[in-house]
């Protein structure tokens, strides 16, 4: 592969959307109201749309005949590069919203920076995605406020979710070797630079939602290196089921 760093860099971005989209897809038909169900599915659809653009591009770079679906569905566990945050389960709606918000806040800042990428395909994907993700972030931050500053029960549930998910936020700002090289070349986003703004913003929303900002200094990492939580295996079991059971067929 001529540009393995770029290829890996794209996968790092796309896998986040892929796994989060998959998680949201689980909820379709099971949301707390019809309206919310439709909204979560819209987010899932946006994410899968982004995934397809990224993987179609990755497929061109790979030049080995693999399609977007091969890249999405036929890698091994250790080859998925998504952050641990997005693979966390839909324990309840507070977890779904907490995961969404903690990711959206990052995702939006990331895409705004990616719009300036020297790689024109990536900047074009970012231009399109930034509008979608602005809406995601609005949706999830509004819900953080509703649940945080709603009833006692919802406040407690929302706080629990934030406390549990907080440990996965630091990883968003880690860099792999490919990330560093891409950032130096002006193609990738220098994510450590986003960190302060991210926590400032997240803290602002949590405070408005009357939620406590977790004080834990212990963070989990590894997703970007392919060392995941136990959840990912199950996600992949479903995601890959058809491609693995019926190899080399068209659908």
């Amino acid at each position: 592969m001529k540009n393995e760093n770029l290829y890996n860099y794209i996968l790092g971005i796309a896998d986040n959307s892929l796994i989060l989209g998959q998680r949201l897809g689980e909820l379709c038909g099971h949301g707390p109201s019809l309206e919310t169900d439709i909204a979560c599915t819209n987010i899932s659809l946006d994410l899968f749309g982004q995934v397809r653009s990224y993987f179609q591009y990755a497929s061109k770079i790979a030049e080995d005949g693999r399609t977007e679906d091969d890249i999405a569905m036929l890698r091994k566990e250790r080859d998925y590069k998504n952050v641990l945050l997005v693979e966390q389960p839909n324990t309840n709606f507070a977890y779904t919203i907490g995961r969404q918000f903690l990711f959206d806040a990052y995702h939006l800042m990331f895409l705004k920076a990616l719009q300036k990428s020297a790689d024109l395909t990536l900047s074009a994907i970012a231009d399109k995605s930034v509008k979608e993700v602005s809406y995601h972030e609005r949706f999830s931050s509004d819900w953080i406020k509703r649940l945080g500053d709603g009833t006692d029960e919802s406040h407690e549930k929302m706080q629990d979710a934030i406390n549990d998910l907080w440990t996965y936020t630091d990883e968003l700002f880690h860099q792999t070797e490919a990330d560093k090289i891409m950032a130096t070349e002006g193609v990738g986003v220098d994510v450590p630079e986003l960190k302060t703004a991210y926590y400032n913003y997240v803290n602002e929303i949590l405070t408005e939602a009357t939620l406590e900002i977790p004080e834990s200094k212990y963070f989990q990492k590894g997703g970007k290196q392919g060392i995941h939580t136990e959840h990912l295996g199950y996600i992949l079991a479903e995601l890959q089921y058809m491609q693995r059971t019926y190899p080399n067929m068209e659908w």
């Binding site: 309206e35 439709i38 909204a39 819209n42 809406y135 609005r138 949706f139 509004d142 509703r146």
Partner: peptide, 11 residues
């Protein structure tokens, strides 16, 4: 009203 606007957009 905010949620109604968001829902209307999605629906």
């Amino acid at each position: 009203a905010e949620m109604a606007l968001e829902n209307a957009r999605d629906v």
